[in-house]
Structures are given as C-alpha cells and as structure tokens.
Design a protein around this nucleic acid. Structure first.
Lengths: 352, 352
DNA sequence: CTGAAAGCGCTAACAT
DNA sequence: ATGTTAGCGCTTTCAG
C-alpha cells in the first residue's frame, strides 16, 4: 500500500499555486449566482425567508440543493455573535458524577432537545482547577451561547460565579448558596416524603435513612424524610454517605446495622446507595423486603437490575432536561425565565 | 428593576447609533494598540510565537493579560478552515449504548484528551434517520475537524460512508464491513482467550458462553472462546444475546440452564450480561462460583458492584480513548495513522 | 523580525 | 421585495 492515510490529491498538476485545497464548499455567492439573485436574498432565505418572493425562494432553494450548500457557521457567528452551541458543563469533584446512571439520561435528553433547535452541545469537564479555568475562558470567550451546569456538589462554583455574569446559565438541581442562577430540579423533598410515607404504610416502624446532604438535592431528601417521620427520625437512624455510590451505600448500611440492628426499613437517597445497602444486607443475612424494606431514589437503570428490584422514586429526568433547555433558550433570547420544579413519582417494585 | 436583561450601556449619550452592545470583548487590535505593535505581530504570538522578538512577545503577552483577551474562534475558523472541534458521534440503534457504563468512560477520557489539545468535543446522537442526516450535514458542513465514531452495532454506517469521505474519522472498535476507516480497539479475541483459559484452569468442564456477535467486538470474543475450547465449545453451550444488557443476560442464562443444566461455568461477553446471568443463577438456586463460575468482560463499574463481584477482562478504555484522539489528530494533520489494538487483562474477583 | 493589506463567508443596514 | 455595501476579527501573504 502506498501510505494508508489519505488518497493522493486528485489534482495531477497541482503544484506551486496549491491554494488551500481543503474543504472548499459552495458559498452563498455560488448559490446566489446559480439562482440568479443577490447574496442578500439568499441570506434572507437562510434566515426565515421573510420578504422574499415565492419565485426567488424557489430558485434559491433549488440552487441550494444543487450546490449542496451548507452555511459556514463561523462566518455567520462572526457577524451574529451567536455560536448556536451551548456548553454542558460537568463538575465532577470526585469523578463520581460521571458514573451516575442519571447523568447519561440528562446528557442524552439535553442533546436531543438542543438538536431540535439546531444547537450543538459541547461537553466540558471541570474536575480540577485547570479545567475550571479552561471552561471559564471558553465560556466567556463567547464560544457558546449559554451553559447547562451539571454539578453534583453544590459548593465550589467558581463556575457559577461566572455564570452569574452575563452568560446565560441554568443549573440542574438547586445550587447551594442561593446564587441567582435559575435551575430545574425534581421535587426532591416531596419525593422523599412519598417514599417515607410508603414505608410507613407498609407497617415499618424503625425506618433508617442513608443520606448525602452535600449533594444537590440531598438535603431536601433528608428533610422530606423528617417531614413524615417527625420525632421518629431518630438521630441514630440517619447516616451520611460521602457520595451517591454503591460502596458508600454498603458502608453506610454497615454502620446503620451496627448502631440500629433493630431497623426494619431503609430509605437511601439514591438508587446506587440503595444497591449498596442491598449488598450489605444480604451479607448480613437480612432478607429484603421481609426483614428490612429498602427504598431508593431516582429510578435509574440499576433500580431494575438489583435483586430484589428496587422500589424507588422516579425523577423525570427527560423532562428536567427538556425544561433546562427551554429555560436556557429563553435566557439566551433575553426572555424572563424562572426556576422550575418537576414532580416525582413512587415506583413500587420488590424491595419495599 | 429596569429590565433585568442587560445592564444599561455605559454610554450615557448613545442613542440612535446604539451599536450592537452585546458581548464586545477586546479584539486583536486592542491588544496590538496597547502593546504598541501591529495586528500581525499579535497574531504571530497567538500562533506559536515564531519570528517574534522577545521584547514584542513580552509586550503582547502583557497586553493580552491586561485586556483579558480571548481569541474569537469564529473569526479564526473563518480563515483557517479549522474548527478546533471534533464530533463524538454515538449511534445507539437501541438506546442501549448510552446506558453502557463503558460509554461514560470513553466519553470522559476523550473529552479530557481533546481538552489537552484545546479541542472541544461536540456530542451528537444518531439514533434515527433524521438524526443521521443531521449529523451528516453537520460534519460535512465543516463544523468539525474530525469525528470519533462510537457505534455498538457495526452494520448501519451511512455515517461511515461519509466518514470514508474526506472527514477524518476514527472508530471505536473494528467496524464491520471492513470499511477503510481506522479504528482503535481492545484485543477482544485474546481477551476472550484469557478468560476462557482461566475458567479451564479452574477445572471447569462445561463452559458456556453468552455472546453477542452483532455488537462490535462481540464476534471476536466468541472466536477467542472457541480458540481455547476447540470442539468442547459445544453448540448448545453457546447462546446469543440481542444486546449487552442485564435483562438479555438473564434471559440468555435461562436458556443456557434449560439446554445445558450440567453447565459449570459461563463466560459472558460483557459485564452487563454477566450481571444478568448472576441474577438468573441465583434465582435458579445455583451458587456462584461454587456451582457455576461466571466470567464477564469489560471490567466496568458493575463488575465491582455485583454480588459476588465479577471476574472479568479489563479493557483499557482510557487508553483506547487516548489512542483514538491521537489517531484522529494525526489524521487531521494529514499524517499517516493506522488502526491500533490494545491489550486486555484478566481481573480475578469472586465469581470465577 | 514586523507592518500593511487582502480577504475568509456571512448578515444587516441601507438604498432602491 | 431585492441589490449593494460595509464590516465581524482573524490569519496570511507580501513587502520591507
């Protein structure tokens, strides 16, 4: 084989004056010429087609098809100052968030919702200082029209401080510190109430909770649990997990069993935590749900894959995503847009 | 409040001639003026700083800092014809791929590897016809410099037909049909051999396989299994799963137990499949690994979270990602770049 | 080594 | 309704 990289250029004689032979698609002028109209008219067709005669419109459309024209986004952005792209910024202080099954759902749904508006999604990670700076520079450099901010932990947010500036931003989940940026979230507190009520209705008496207050929404879930239980939410029944992970769930369950061996139900603040709890309960020889009922939160994929399958609270993440995009687009258009809270739903399976 | 959108322009008298007051960062000219050099020199500093006197360099750098200058990527792209962005195209015919824990790893690692080169990652989905067209138009519209193609199923690939064109593309996993595009993959076949050998060494006699030949790498894993077992790879010991999912694994295991109740080991072509098999084995009252040993493939997160934890084959996905990016960058620079195969590793845990 | 000048392809006034 | 024109901010010859 000759080389394996690129087929040789198809221009046998291209020598000295080898201009940029690269991607050299048809321009708006080519279309205009072919359609027998001016460049301005073509531009009008491209942008809404108002004030264009049907005849011209048809001619232009045909010419575009014939030439296989595509707008040059750079040229357009240069003048409009819009990029038609938004950043999906993921701050994952502990590398965890990325493994969260919920994250995939958000990412997919946001991508789709944006695609419907012909806006592209640029994924950016912000796990350390350097990356944070990179993101900041990038965002305020005008490379994107707005940002979808996904952060597990609510603290950090140097990003948010930027976001508070002039770049339209919407967060997933209520950011801590009550920064002024709009957010979209599930009704964590009410969701937690639903689960706790369910456990009570099942006749459970000593209901423990594995929480994770430092994660967005975590504090609310804890509050919901307390709302329902009141003083029955004994201090020893509540343990904190450092993150929404399987191992953290197992570890928390171990502590719970140690301090409260008489426990007959556990509400974990996420499905991953619940799955970890399940593993630990089995190890400890407790039957689920007979000895101990287990409730999760999220209704992520893993809720269906544990054994027994998890009873959990469904977060409408597709809806959250669509709302985030909707709010962001309004913000970009300088329209007013408030935060939104979306309802949750109890999903009963085998574990409780 | 006055408006809530944009703080009023700081020009008390700007009236009729209210220019676009939007994002109006410092330009290369502002920097040039402040540094007392020409616009050309600033540009040179921006691009490699060759042929620039130390004095000029310093002045420019100071001016850039003072003004908080950031290049306008659109303006740059307009002339260079590069976008400094690549598309991460995900074809997920069955919505599954996105839930694959491996995918997250790839996405994260690719994003990071690209960020190191100041290239941004644009995520695109290609699950149906419309989206495929969208991706095609987008990619060949010159919006990206190249594409990272992640597809579970190997067939479709109208995308690939584009990729074969002039847009630099690298696939994850060997694409079917032997299209000419370079790819990066793990040594699936050898990995499968490693696992099968391990099971044999454990004294297992009737080793079944849950395969998924239509998924990239799936056929190779099946071959590896057969390489080791030879005629002991009875037909009835091999079942096909429709996808790499938990439920497919459970279902396949059920069939396997039905046709070959005497089975004493199973090698599943992915961890998800193995996890499903585990669930089914427990349901059937078979102990793992005592009655039946179970081997997975991927060493994804779930391998650590099943009970018992999975013995599996580690795919070096971070390495795969970095190599994909490396190959793609070479391709973009029109340098030669061949496909690459990366070694796998046996990870022994509890299930086998 | 550096400045000047010519566009890149497009949109948005501004005239018709 | 349509053509004309002036840039958007940058890189890249081309002269010095």
């Amino acid at each position: 084989m000759s080389d394996g990289t690129t087929p040789d250029a198809p221009h046998p004689k291209s020598r000295g004056a080898a201009r940029r032979a690269m991607r050299r698609g048809p321009t708006i002028d080519d279309v205009a010429e072919l359609a027998g109209v001016s460049r301005g008219t073509v531009s009008r067709v491209l942008n809404g087609a108002r004030y264009v005669s049907p005849a011209a419109l048809k001619a232009v459309e045909r010419a575009m098809r014939q030439t296989g024209y595509t707008v040059n986004q750079s040229a357009r952005s240069l003048v409009t100052k819009r990029s038609d792209a938004v950043a999906f910024v993921l701050s994952e202080p502990q590398e965890r968030l990325f493994e969260d099954p919920n994250f995939s759902v958000l990412l997919r749904a946001c991508t789709q919702a944006l695609a419907a508006h012909d806006i592209s999604l640029i994924l950016m990670l912000e796990s350390d200082e350097d990356e944070r700076d990179r993101v900041l520079r990038y965002v305020r450099g005008g490379h994107v029209d707005g940002v979808l901010l996904i952060s597990a932990h609510s603290g950090d947010s140097l990003i948010a401080s930027l976001a508070r500036g002039d770049v339209p931003t919407v967060a997933c989940g209520k950011p801590a510190g009550d920064i002024g940026i709009p957010y979209v979230a599930a009704e964590d507190r009410e969701g937690a109430r639903q689960m706790t009520r369910h456990l009570v209705e099942q006749g459970r008496k000593r209901i423990g909770m594995i929480g994770c207050p430092q994660i967005a929404g975590g504090a609310e879930r804890l509050e919901g649990y307390r709302d329902v239980l009141g003083r029955r939410a004994l201090r020893r029944l509540v343990v904190d997990a450092p993150s929404y992970s399987h191992s953290a769930g197992a570890e928390a369950m171990r502590r719970l069993l140690a301090t409260s061996p008489d426990i007959d139900a556990v509400f974990a603040a996420s499905d991953s935590l619940a799955a970890g709890a399940l593993t630990e309960l089995r190890r400890a020889g407790r039957g689920v749900p007979d000895d101990v009922a287990v409730g999760g939160f999220d209704d992520s994929r893993i809720a269906r894959e544990t054994d027994p399958a998890l009873t959990t609270i469904r977060q409408p993440l597709e809806l959250v995503s669509r709302n985030m995009v909707d709010v962001l687009l309004r913000l970009i258009r300088r329209e007013p847009a408030a935060s939104r809270l979306l309802p949750t739903e109890l999903v009963v399976r085998e574990s409780a």
